[in-house]
Amino acid sequence: MALTIEEVEHVARLARLNLPAEEKNMYAQQLSSILDFFTILNRLPTDGVEPLAHVLPLFNVMRADETGPSLPRDEAMANAPLAEDGQFKVPKIV
């Protein structure tokens, strides 16, 4: 199953990846071979098998509604490339 260059570009854009032309070709091949592997899995009979969202037999893991300490602000913002008035500063959005 061959992935087109356009599809690779679309997926790269969704992940905010800027790929040079030669890498686009490389990923098209690699991703295609991953999808080929799924076509093998697709041959298995799965009629009557419920889709599985989680592999562990765990349900209803919940905590009580109680508050705890948050991070000090300088620690929370330590990695911010730009900040202003205690807030993260980001480029224009739209």
Partner: peptide
């Protein structure tokens, strides 16, 4: 009282970025 998936308080109007973890 607390957020959906952590213990941080949900109160409105606090100083920016003080209820984060």
């Amino acid at each position: 009282k607390s957020k959906a998936f952590c213990h941080c308080a949900t109160s409105f109007g606090a100083e920016p970025n003080t209820h984060v973890c």
